[in-house]
Simulated assay, not measured.
Amino acid sequence: MLATMTVTEDGRYSLRFERRFRHPQAKVWRAITETERLREWFVQILDYDRLEFDLAPGAELTFVPKAEHAAMGTGHGTVTRFDPPDLLEYTWDSETLRWELTPEGDSCRMVFTTIFGERESGPALGSGWHIGLDLLAASLDGRDADRHAWESLPADYERVLG
């Protein structure tokens, strides 16, 4: 299911994704908060050996790219909300990332929201985070992701959000 985009009260844009995982909330929480788990699915251009991702309210975060992506520059953020294992929110430069987890029996529902400034960024962010969440599901399931399913995502998000 594709993300939905809305305009925030302050005139920025919000993409909302909802996913259900057949895994307990605690396992999904570890996947979004532990560096070793992030390596398996999160932004693939990051150097996880140099990432500063110590989570606590107000903590400063540093997102260091791998050497071959150094031109993108190091990103910085701050933890704005931290309520384990239900809510994690932090900034990454001008973007806000919010992860809300709700247990549903032995499963977990995730609502992931990203807030950003330029509407034109919506299709690229939509397809990128969609792929990331598919990688998260595959990682949790212990399987390879279906990369062929991603071929149409940029065009789908451009059609829906562009």
Rank of each mutant, 00 (worst) to 15 (best):
M1E: 13
M5F: 03
T8I: 09
E9F: 00
D10N: 12
D10L: 02
G11K: 00
Y13S: 06
L15N: 02
R19A: 03
R20Y: 10
R20T: 15
R22A: 15
V28Y: 07
R30E: 15
R30K: 15
A31N: 01
A31T: 07
I32C: 02
I32G: 01
I32Q: 09
T33W: 05
E34M: 08
R37N: 13
L38S: 06
E40A: 14
E40S: 14
W41R: 05
L46Q: 07
R50T: 08
R50S: 14
F53V: 05
L55S: 06
A56N: 05
A59W: 11
P65Q: 07
E68L: 01
H69E: 03
H69S: 08
A70F: 00
A71M: 10
G75D: 07
H76Q: 08
R81P: 00
D86F: 03
L88G: 08
T91N: 10
T91G: 13
D93R: 13
D93L: 04
R98D: 06
W99Q: 00
E100N: 13
L101P: 10
S107N: 14
F112M: 11
T113R: 14
T113P: 04
T114P: 05
E118F: 14
G122K: 06
S127P: 00
S127G: 00
S127A: 12
G128E: 02
W129F: 14
G132T: 10
L133N: 01
D134G: 03
L135W: 10
L140K: 08
D144W: 00
D144I: 00
A145L: 06
D146W: 10
A149M: 03
S152R: 13
L153Y: 15
L153K: 05
D156Q: 15
E158C: 02
V160P: 01
L161G: 06
